[in-house]
Computed example of a mutant assay.
Amino acid sequence: GSNGLFKGRIQVISFETDEVTQLASCEPTVMLEVPFKILVWQDGDDTFIAFTNAMNLKHRYMIRGCDEIIHEINKSLIRVVNDAIRTN
Rank of each mutant, 00 (worst) to 15 (best):
46 D>M: 13
50 A>W: 13
41 W>Y: 09
70 I>N: 02
16 E>K: 10
73 I>R: 01
32 L>H: 03
52 T>L: 12
20 V>D: 00
51 F>L: 14
50 A>C: 12
32 L>N: 08
30 V>S: 04
87 T>L: 10
38 I>L: 13
73 I>Q: 00
20 V>A: 03
36 F>V: 14
50 A>E: 11
6 F>T: 02
86 R>G: 03
40 V>Y: 07
46 D>R: 13
31 M>D: 03
87 T>C: 12
81 V>T: 14
39 L>C: 05
9 R>A: 11
26 C>R: 00
87 T>V: 14
20 V>F: 09
63 I>F: 00
57 L>R: 04
48 F>E: 04
58 K>H: 11
5 L>M: 15
19 E>Y: 08
69 I>W: 02
81 V>N: 06
3 N>Y: 07
18 D>N: 08
34 V>I: 14
82 N>R: 15
16 E>M: 11
18 D>F: 04
42 Q>G: 04
72 E>K: 15
7 K>W: 04
19 E>W: 02
79 R>Y: 08
35 P>I: 11
13 I>C: 03
61 Y>E: 02
28 P>Q: 02
67 D>I: 11
50 A>Q: 13
1 G>C: 14
42 Q>I: 09
60 R>N: 05
48 F>V: 10
35 P>H: 05
82 N>D: 15
75 K>R: 03
16 E>V: 12
84 A>Q: 14
44 G>D: 07
55 M>E: 00
1 G>F: 10
46 D>W: 08
78 I>A: 04
5 L>E: 13
3 N>L: 07
7 K>Y: 07
79 R>D: 02
18 D>T: 02
27 E>H: 15
77 L>W: 04
51 F>T: 09
9 R>C: 09
85 I>E: 13
81 V>A: 10
71 H>G: 03
69 I>K: 00
52 T>C: 13
44 G>C: 11
58 K>E: 06
1 G>H: 10
63 I>E: 00
42 Q>V: 08
57 L>K: 05
12 V>M: 01
66 C>I: 08
23 L>C: 07
82 N>K: 15
50 A>H: 14
27 E>A: 10
15 F>R: 05
7 K>T: 08
33 E>H: 08
1 G>D: 05
39 L>W: 04
21 T>W: 01
26 C>M: 06
43 D>L: 09
16 E>N: 06
45 D>V: 11
35 P>E: 00
27 E>R: 15
55 M>K: 07
51 F>N: 04
66 C>E: 02
68 E>I: 12
47 T>F: 05
70 I>G: 01
75 K>E: 00
23 L>F: 06
14 S>V: 07
29 T>M: 11
30 V>Y: 05
20 V>E: 01
57 L>S: 06
5 L>C: 14
39 L>A: 02
88 N>K: 10
2 S>P: 10
36 F>P: 12
14 S>C: 04
